[in-house]
Simulated assay, not measured.
Amino acid sequence: MSNRSVLQVGPLKPSLAQTLQDDYAAYVLPDEPTEFLAEHGAEIRAAVTSGRTGVNAELMAALPNLGAVVNFGVGYDTTDVDAAAARGIGVSNTPDVLTDCVADTAVGLMLDTLRQFSASDRYVRAGRWTAEGNYPLTRQVSNTRVGIIGLGRIGSAIAKRLSAFGCTISYHNRHAKDDSPYTYVGSPVELAAGVDVLVVAAAGGAGTQKLVSSEVIDALGTRGYLINIARGSVVDEEALVAALVDGRLAGAGLDVFADEPNVPEALLSMDNVVVLPHVASGTVETRAAMEELTLRNLNSFLESGQLVTPVQVPVTASG
């Protein structure tokens, strides 16, 4: 490229970062950016980032010619979409390509949490099977009542998989889906009160902050399980930990947390809690597809000013 108009914001998949360097001569935003932005801010037309970093309003203001935030990942709640909309800045993400792997992870977490496979594995490795006898009985997964918060692409894929397990599916969204075969419930509290397992698949952002509140967790109850593959911000993490510590919730399977990579210490010793390091989309195939779509968005914007998979901003709720 004849000019350096691309900025990498935050760490990215190594091969993607290398392509940005090799093919676009991209700048990398330094940790102390003031001097860099003063010198180069006006050159930047596109910022490439991820859901773990994002582009805030302050950075947008320092990039007066920014036209697009190209996001590696489906979640973009770390980018200030309201500020982007106000400035006419497009935002893209990578939908669809990670739906299957994230849905697979949700089902895997549900199986592991209810059946305690990871805990059983630790039991055997610690020599406890021979010393203490059989592992305690666990909960059945098939034919359970499952509630899904956020019946978008990923939520629908989770529902399809769990239907094959004979599960009864209900859901909460901003609005009922006319073509959905599943039962719509008008509030998260009402949904939680009627299910055995609550799966969180809602988008992150201000509109869903702590949508799974202490009231929702209490409604799920002592025999209920929470599975979260969405964003840590969607769940009141303090309330969740307190409920698990007090025995007011049967268990939880969590791929995301409020302050990643920090996980509440209390969860680490609980056999009824499965914790994953935000790996729901972490397969070779999915990450390659995400990278390819990220670059298609970047190329399309630089060539035509249009994004391939733009998101609708501002976004204020799940779905």
Rank of each mutant, 00 (worst) to 15 (best):
L111S: 05
V275A: 10
Y27N: 09
F117L: 13
L249P: 00
A288F: 02
V197D: 01
A201C: 12
T168V: 15
G319L: 06
G108H: 04
R52S: 13
G205M: 02
D80T: 05
S2Q: 09
N93D: 12
N262P: 07
V284N: 13
A126H: 13
E43K: 10
G253Q: 05
E32Q: 15
S163G: 15
G73I: 05
G150R: 04
N3D: 07
T138H: 05
I154W: 03
V9E: 02
N56L: 13
L276V: 11
D22S: 12
F301S: 00
G194D: 12
R174G: 15
P181G: 12
Q306I: 03
G67L: 12
T208F: 00
E237D: 10
L114D: 00
S92V: 05
G147R: 02
C167Q: 01
I217N: 04
P30W: 08
R122D: 15
A219L: 07
P33K: 06
V74K: 02
T34G: 10
S2G: 09
S2Y: 02
L63Y: 03
A47W: 04
T316M: 09
S214L: 05
V146P: 01
H278L: 06
I89V: 15
E32K: 13
L137P: 02
Q306T: 07
S118Y: 06
V273G: 01
S269Q: 14
L307P: 02
A103C: 11
G155H: 02
A84W: 01
C167F: 01
L137H: 11
I169R: 01
I154D: 05
A62D: 12
A68D: 08
V9P: 00
T34M: 08
G253Y: 00
D22T: 15
S170E: 11
T49Q: 05
